[in-house]
């Protein structure tokens, strides 16, 4: 008994969708997630990966099928059918991508909102950190902190200075200056970033976060680390000959360990006054 072509097409389509969903859900291409917004990002990635797989496998399948099925056999002459178009079909494959793209756009907007990307600039969490900002405008980064600012945990302010070819981290409350970034797990952190010379970019792949550090335009980046460990900080904007070597480390500590680190290094906390070590 011959199975009608429509049924076959339907089954193939369903198999394709299932394959795409399976691949999207089960093949992990990303590094470990270590910040509050990384799982949100990974969710978006899975959806995009599934849709992409379905489209790609479907189109490659169609091409390979056409090349095999409709190839010109030796000795065969003549043309294919003179089909110049099919309006309903063309409307269909305009409408479907439009709907998919619209869905992806709205979904990624939602993701971005959950990551704090749509938070207004210069919000109160900014004013909370370290007094008045002389640079009157702070340029947008991702700041999920502002969404949680009612919570008990106030964001830990840290000043970041990027220069050729290093990041310097300054903790204004504890007056610590460090070449490595120490942050407590679970507490929001607000990085206030400035560049001295050229554009750099602060990127922690495990946090899924990146923000350019622009001379003349301070930028803000906030995140909450969720997994203890050491993760690379990478400069992602070409900044000169040693750009590839402009790396640092972010160390996510348990709150107590972080507390201990602050007490050990802060000139304020130590009773004996010490000259603060710069750079």
């Amino acid at each position: 008994m011959r199975i009608p072509a429509a049924i076959l097409t339907l089954i193939t389509g369903m198999a394709l969708v299932l394959l795409g969903l399976w691949i999207g859900q089960n093949i992990n291409l990303l590094p470990v997630d270590a910040s509050a917004n990384a799982p949100v990002y990974d969710e978006l990635f899975k959806v995009l990966f599934s849709i992409g797989t379905i489209l790609f496998v479907g189109i490659v399948g169609l091409i390979v099928y056409s090349l095999v099925k409709f190839r010109r056999k030796p000795g065969e002459s003549g043309d294919g059918e003179a089909v110049e178009g099919n309006l309903p079909l063309e409307i269909l494959w305009t409408a479907i991508p439009a709907v998919v793209v619209l869905f992806v756009g709205i979904y990624s907007y939602d993701i971005y909102d959950r990551m704090g990307g749509m938070a207004p600039l210069n919000d109160h969490s900014m004013h909370a950190m370290g007094g008045e900002m002389e640079e009157s405008r702070t340029w947008g980064g991702i700041s999920p902190v502002s969404l949680e600012s009612d919570a008990a945990a106030a964001p830990l302010p840290i000043d970041v200075t990027a220069m050729q070819f290093a990041f310097i981290f300054h903790y204004p409350d504890a007056e610590i200056t460090s070449g490595e970034l120490h942050v407590p797990m679970g507490q929001p952190v607000a990085l206030h970033m400035k560049a001295n010379d050229v554009i750099h970019a602060f990127w922690v792949p495990e946090f899924r976060l990146k923000q350019d550090v622009i001379p003349g335009q301070p930028t803000l980046l906030s995140f909450t680390a969720t997994r203890p460990g050491r993760y690379p900080i990478v400069c992602a904007e070409l900044c000169g000959p040693y750009h590839g070597g402009m790396r640092s480390t972010v160390i996510v500590d348990e709150p107590e360990t972080f507390e201990a680190w602050v007490n050990q290094n802060s000139p304020i906390a130590n009773a004996a006054p010490q000259t603060p070590v710069q750079s």
Binding site: I59, L62, I63, S66, L67, F70, R71, R72, E76, G78, D79, G80, E81, V83, N86, L89, E90, W93, T94, P97, A98, V101, L102, V104, G105, S108, Y109
Partner: peptide
């Protein structure tokens, strides 16, 4: 810019589907 960029996929997609439909049922010289 997210929305505008995503929507470029629509006219581009039309072209690709049209090429696939051009191949479909042809006498393809490989």
């Amino acid at each position: 810019f997210t929305i505008a960029t995503s929507f470029i996929a629509v006219p581009t997609g039309i072209k690709f589907f049209n090429w696939l439909a051009t191949m479909w049922g042809g006498r393809i010289a490989l």
